[in-house]
């Protein structure tokens, strides 16, 4: 495990539509090893999808400014020319999206789309490419795959379309799979099927997967490691079981607290995080969570907290990490009726 598959160092992504400046990603450090599944979790506007798309440089070139370092499979993505970028996309790194109906081309059959992708990157004949497409459909467990290759996207159900999109993403044997909320639009019964499929494929093919979701449950089903994002920064990251059972950052604690089995007990009020995430066009100077954090003081609002290693690949960015347990205990006492 010498070279990580993906390495982000101090990555900033900024959008500059006319007259505006939106700081979507503000200094993200992340490494993903070979064969590792990392989940990026966070609420909408936390920068998780922007980070993911930056890994393939999918943002419009004209209005986006990147800075920092971004390496995928040992190659510098930010410095790549157009040709190298097309070689990277699809061939080494592939992406699946939330809504397959929008991501797939409605006027070509699924078979044609997969054959096109294969022939774009590899010198194969039509028949050979189609044979590979058929294997892919079998691999993602689409029933009667031969017939489905000739189907158009609208003829399939949501779950089948998502499987077909995974097949398309795997067409050229990529090393990295980027998944942007792949199960959010699906029913629970189908979601679990897709999650199990991703897990199996990851094991069989040794893929590195970056999985973006706001659903902690879905992340827990597939991820080895998790990174929690807030306002374009990673506030906490660690091994999935560690992070879920012993969250350290106040935001992670609050986020997980709202999903605890005990928290959803009837008649009990839900613990909420007051307020809303900050406006990315007007980012506060200090910790972005300070405005909603019960434990923030003036120092928190003045400077962005440093990332601190907590051992066993667990890290969090909060100034008051050491004081938190004591502060939480005080709060619990206050909450008790006297």
């Amino acid at each position: 495990m010498s070279d990580p598959m993906i390495r982000l160092r101090e990555l900033y992504v900024e959008f500059n539509p006319p007259g505006k400046r939106i700081q979507a990603v503000n200094g993200v450090d992340l490494t993903v090893d070979r064969g590792e599944v990392v989940a990026l979790i966070g609420e909408s506007g936390s920068g998780k999808s922007v980070t993911l798309r930056a890994m393939m440089r999918l943002h419009p070139e004209k209005t986006t400014r990147y800075s920092g370092a971004l390496e995928v499979a040992g190659q510098d993505v930010l410095g790549m020319g157009g040709g190298a970028l097309s070689q990277l996309r699809g061939k080494r790194v592939a992406m699946i999206f939330q809504e397959p109906l929008l991501a797939l081309d409605p006027v070509y059959t699924l078979g044609e789309q997969i054959v096109e992708a294969i022939r774009r990157h590899e010198p194969l004949g039509r028949a050979e490419a189609r044979a590979r497409a058929l294997q892919l459909f079998e691999r993602v467990r689409i029933p009667s795959p031969e017939r489905r290759l000739d189907a158009y996207p609208h003829e399939m159900s949501g779950g089948m379309r998502q499987r077909a999109m995974i097949a398309l993403a795997l067409a050229c044997n990529p090393q990295v799979l980027l998944a942007d909320e792949p199960t959010t639009a699906l029913d629970a019964t189908v979601q679990i099927q897709i999650l199990l499929l991703l897990r199996d494929l990851q094991r069989e093919l040794g893929l590195s997967i970056v999985f973006v979701t706001h659903d902690i449950g879905a992340a827990a089903e597939v991820a080895d490691r998790m990174a929690v994002m807030y306002a374009g920064r990673i506030v906490e990251e660690g091994p999935a079981s560690e992070l879920l059972t012993r969250p350290r950052h106040p935001y992670t604690r609050a986020l997980l607290g709202s999903r605890d089995e005990g928290a959803l007990r009837k008649g009990r009020r839900l613990d909420t995080i007051g307020g809303a995430p900050p406006d990315l066009a007007r980012l506060p100077a200090g910790c972005a969570f300070a405005a909603r954090c019960a434990f923030a003081d003036d120092a928190c609002r003045a400077a962005v907290p440093e990332r601190r290693e907590l051992g066993a690949r667990h890290a969090a960015a909060c100034r008051r990490l050491d004081e938190l347990p004591a502060l939480l205990a005080v709060r619990a006492d206050e909450a008790l009726p006297s």
């Binding site: 679990i192 999650l195 659903d215 449950g217 827990a220 079981s241 879920l244």
Partner: peptide, 9 residues
């Protein structure tokens, strides 16, 4: 989803 990585479906 189970929300517990040790008790996955």
């Amino acid at each position: 989803p189970s929300t517990d990585p040790l008790k996955r479906t």
